[in-house]
Amino acid sequence: MERIVDVAPDVRLWVEETGCPDGSPLLLIMGANASGLTWPADLVRALGERHRVIRYDHRDTGRSTWTFDVQPYAVRDLADDAVAVLDALGIGRAHVVGMSMGGTLVQLLLLDHPDRLLSATLFATAALEGAGQDGAAPAAFTDTDPRLLELWQHLADPRDRDTEVAWRVGHWRLLNGAGIPFDAEEFRLMEEQVIDHAGRHDNTAAHARADQAGLARGAELARVTVPTLVIEAPNDPINPPPAAHRVAEAISGATVATVPGMGHALPSAVVEPLAAAVLVHTGRVDAQH
């Protein structure tokens, strides 16, 4: 079921619910500048065998409000949007799963809204600034593949639709890493679907321009009590090892699982092991409730 929900003045988000209506809610939070349709349908179905799965489009993606140029916001506002989605659906507590920037947002939820979380899972992300015993977590993108840093300089360049699709596929090729063979056609079809869903093919790079203030809260992660799983993506070219272990060390009680070969993308080859890792974690938590 699809719906549009209001999360802030003049801001509406596209939200989709699928899966088991009587299952515990599970909210998927995607990364920067990425529509909720970037979550593979097969992964959503696998999680939906046990959970009421919710995915949504961030502001300035997909069918949600594209507002940054006239109504700029901070990254931390996107975490508040996730809570607003739960409110709109009448969900008191949910499992949350975040990838990349979504993992940053999950960390903010752990700090500011722990009462709304049944559990947390995050992957392909970095710890909030100030994490670690010495508060010396590496600066953002310190270990990132320099080819990606160069490509990001052209994130918002104007392109026609075909050129934009080709650019995105090339971007995914780098994000995929070398651990799993890259299927360009799989990602081309995904991006065609994302563009059709949004009704536009441009990328305003809004999340890259959003205010980063309020994210230097890594030291606070030591007080987290929500059951948390950090999934290591060993071939992630943005947050390579030991990034996942740094996140887990910063979050009190967090555990680590590895999806072999995974990079900073979700090809079909990682769907089964990724779903299995999430479901083991959420299953343990649900059993306790």
Rank of each mutant, 00 (worst) to 15 (best):
G214H: 13
Q193R: 12
G253Y: 06
A233W: 00
I238G: 03
R55F: 10
F68Y: 15
I238F: 01
V247W: 05
D115H: 07
M101K: 07
S268K: 10
V278I: 15
A275N: 01
V83Y: 01
L108T: 14
A126S: 15
W152D: 13
F182I: 09
D196S: 09
I91A: 00
A82V: 07
E272Q: 14
L105N: 14
A213R: 15
D202I: 03
R45W: 02
R168V: 04
I251T: 12
H207C: 09
D6R: 14
N235G: 08
S268C: 09
D112E: 09
P181V: 14
T204A: 15
V97K: 01
P234H: 09
E249P: 01
A254K: 04
R59G: 05
T104F: 11
A248W: 01
L28K: 00
T38Y: 15
D160E: 14
L27S: 00
R3V: 08
L26D: 00
A178N: 10
H113S: 08
T38K: 04
V256A: 10
Y56H: 12
T163W: 05
V15H: 05
F182A: 03
R209A: 12
W152C: 03
L108G: 08
A254S: 11
V15T: 02
L274T: 12
R188L: 05
H171M: 11
V270L: 15
N33I: 14
G48H: 10
H51N: 07
L122V: 10
A139Y: 09
T282Q: 01
P158C: 04
D6V: 14
L122T: 11
G253T: 14
N203S: 04
T225K: 15
R55V: 03
A277Q: 06
G103D: 15
R217T: 02
D134K: 14
P240M: 03
T65C: 10
V70Q: 15
V44F: 02
D236Q: 12
F123G: 02
A46Y: 01
S100G: 08
T67M: 07
H207I: 02
T104Y: 09
D80F: 06
A206D: 02
H245N: 13
Q193W: 02
D236F: 04
V15K: 02
G132K: 04
F182R: 11
R173C: 12
H201G: 03
R223T: 15
F123M: 13
Y73R: 08
V97W: 00
P237G: 05
A137M: 04
P242V: 11
L174C: 12
V97E: 00
R161E: 15
A94Q: 00
A222N: 12
A126E: 10
A46I: 08
R161G: 04
H245Q: 10
E192P: 05
S64I: 07
V53Y: 00
V194F: 05
V83G: 08
T104S: 10
P146G: 11
R217P: 04
L149C: 13
A276T: 14
A277Y: 00
L215Q: 06
S252F: 09
Q153C: 06
G177D: 10
A74T: 05
P237Q: 01
V169A: 12
D145E: 10
V7M: 04
L47I: 02
